[in-house]
Simulated assay, not measured.
Amino acid sequence: MATELFGVPASCLRMPHVEKGMAVGLFGGSFNPPHAGHALVAETALRRLRLDQLWWIVTPGNPLKDRSALAPLSERIALSRECSKDPRIKVTAFEAAHKIRYTADTIELVLACNRGVNFVWLMGADSLRDFHRWERWRKIVRSVPIAVFDRPGATLSFLSSKMAKVFDQARIDEDDAPLLARLSPPAWTFVHGPRSSLSSTQLRETVRSAVL
């Protein structure tokens, strides 16, 4: 593998080291830019799901979003590192090295390379609303447990989203969230708790307005 790609150090292009039996959260996104709201989700996940690690996966780009305003990958990684202070949070961009575009492919690769590790996918409630638009979304749900974290304006998404309806029987009580990573999929839960009103879109608009 090249020493770096897109200006990203080789260390960020490899999956973080894990041991069998660990519970590991997968927190993917473009993080354009990362902010305190992302850090809040990560910290809440570590605590509520009792995770040993959390992989903060900075993606090359979201196929469902406009890439014209996407900051360089190296910049988003550097800012993510500044946001994530807990040593259990590992910022990584291994998807870029494998030229992965879709979450389904990311999860398939992660599971194949880390046998015996208990992974759980993390997402905000705002993403749950459009989850059925994700490539092979049903396969994702059947491949790894999912924890959905409350976001302002999206609290009721667990009632209205297509995923929530199709996999209603797979939902576990929030009180059992610490068990989630070690359950066989499909299994998911909705985690209530502290919420941040920050959004990457709003932050980009603020910066654009200031420049103009």
Score class of each variant (00 low, 15 high):
residue 79 L to G: 00
residue 154 A to H: 12
residue 129 R to S: 13
residue 18 V to Q: 13
residue 157 S to G: 09
residue 158 F to D: 14
residue 206 T to Y: 11
residue 29 G to I: 01
residue 96 A to I: 05
residue 198 L to Y: 04
residue 164 A to T: 07
residue 155 T to N: 02
residue 212 L to P: 09
residue 76 R to A: 00
residue 149 F to A: 05
residue 2 A to P: 15
residue 100 I to M: 14
residue 207 V to Q: 03
residue 7 G to S: 01
residue 186 P to W: 03
residue 130 D to P: 01
residue 98 H to T: 04
residue 75 E to D: 13
residue 180 L to G: 11
residue 111 L to D: 01
residue 113 C to W: 05
residue 189 T to S: 10
residue 162 K to Q: 15
residue 103 T to N: 08
residue 23 A to M: 10
residue 125 A to I: 05
residue 193 G to K: 12
residue 71 A to S: 10
residue 32 N to H: 07
residue 157 S to Y: 04
residue 20 K to T: 14
residue 194 P to Q: 02
residue 47 R to M: 12
residue 192 H to P: 00
residue 94 F to G: 09
residue 87 P to F: 06
residue 94 F to W: 10
residue 206 T to E: 15
residue 209 S to C: 09
residue 182 R to P: 02
residue 191 V to L: 15
residue 14 R to Y: 08
residue 101 R to P: 01
residue 184 S to N: 13
residue 59 T to D: 01
residue 187 A to H: 02
residue 148 V to Y: 03
residue 104 A to Q: 08
residue 55 W to N: 11
residue 140 I to L: 08
residue 84 S to C: 14
residue 120 V to C: 13
residue 192 H to R: 14
residue 199 S to E: 06
residue 68 S to L: 11
residue 90 K to Y: 08
residue 21 G to T: 11
residue 26 L to V: 11
residue 103 T to L: 04
residue 51 L to N: 12
